[in-house]
């Protein structure tokens, strides 16, 4: 018994310390965001919320934030619209060249961002789309294609296609089957795919750095510049806000999963 306890103690201790290594820097940023003065001093000399006020009131930060939301929203919408039919094609049909098409769709996941940054820098330069939002939206929409494709494919794989037949047997044609059965059932997973595309764009730094320019600067680009050039404590604010959103979402999901588990357990009891 003792040996078993010991044997599980070592990995547990290791895992916890490494978990601390992962978590600590993020917590540090939270502390920094309330710090005063130059951003790279830790611990900060004093604590204020000045940096938060600066972030929310300066156009230099608000405009890139807004840009990022617009670009991420637009590119997610485009990716979803372009990629979803393809996921249906893969789920429903066998066709010659399926493997090749799949490889093509996955391409954006295989090419290093820096290579694409150079490629788009040149390409959009020729099309006069450099330093425009349109350019960034297009680039980000391309990057999200494989991600949305993978998520949608997984969704469609787990979709119960006999429901479609059942609906037809009830007398619904193609349109009404899609409207009343497929769409309501697939809507949540469409949203998830869209969310992933949104985050992909919102988080993307390298390509945005080189092609968005000052005119269409995204939030990551603004952060990058601010980290590299000045010692701007607002970076810590933005980082904290981003971290807070992620943490909130992660905790809500974990909590709901727990709740869902106990709910389905009571349901099982009721059935009997």
């Amino acid at each position: 018994m003792t040996s078993r306890l010991q044997s599980s103690l070592i990995p547990k201790f290791l895992a916890l310390s490494i978990g601390g290594f992962l978590l600590l820097p993020m917590l540090l940023v939270v502390v920094m965001s309330f710090g005063e003065g130059t951003s790279l001093r830790f611990p900060p000399r004093a604590f204020t919320i000045d940096s938060y006020i600066v972030y929310f009131t300066s156009a230099g930060w608000m405009v890139p934030t807004l840009n990022s939301f617009i670009i991420a929203g637009a590119s997610a919408a485009i990716t979803l619209l372009v990629t979803t039919p393809a996921a249906f094609a893969f789920a429903l049909f066998d066709f010659p060249g399926k493997r090749l098409v799949r490889l093509l769709i996955m391409m954006p996941l295989m090419v290093p961002f820096i290579v694409m940054a150079l490629a788009y820098f040149f390409f959009f330069g020729q099309l006069r789309l450099l330093n425009t939002m349109v350019g960034v939206v297009i680039a980000h929409a391309c990057l999200a294609v494989p991600i949305v494709f993978l998520i949608q494919s997984a969704n469609l794989k787990s979709f119960d296609w006999t429901l479609v037949r059942a609906s037809q047997a009830c007398g619904a044609g193609h349109f009404r089957t899609f409207r009343y059965i497929c769409l309501p059932l697939l809507r949540p997973s469409f949203l998830v795919a869209g969310l992933f595309a949104f985050i992909t764009s919102f988080d993307e730094t390298v390509i945005a750095l080189f092609i968005s320019g000052r005119a269409a600067s995204t939030l990551p680009r603004r952060m990058f510049e601010s980290v590299r050039q000045e010692s701007d404590p607002v970076v810590a604010v933005v980082s904290t806000l981003l971290f807070a959103v992620v943490a909130a979402v992660a905790i809500v999901i974990a909590w709901r999963r727990e709740a869902g588990r106990s709910r389905s357990a009571t349901r099982d009891l009721e059935r009997e």
Partner: peptide
């Protein structure tokens, strides 16, 4: 998962704070 989803710029910044000459 949280660190997976947290902007890697934020995390890079954190390391500047930790390793900087006035850092942690």
């Amino acid at each position: 998962t949280m660190s997976f989803w947290t902007s890697f710029l934020a995390r890079t910044y954190a390391w500047m704070v930790i390793l900087g000459s006035q850092g942690l």
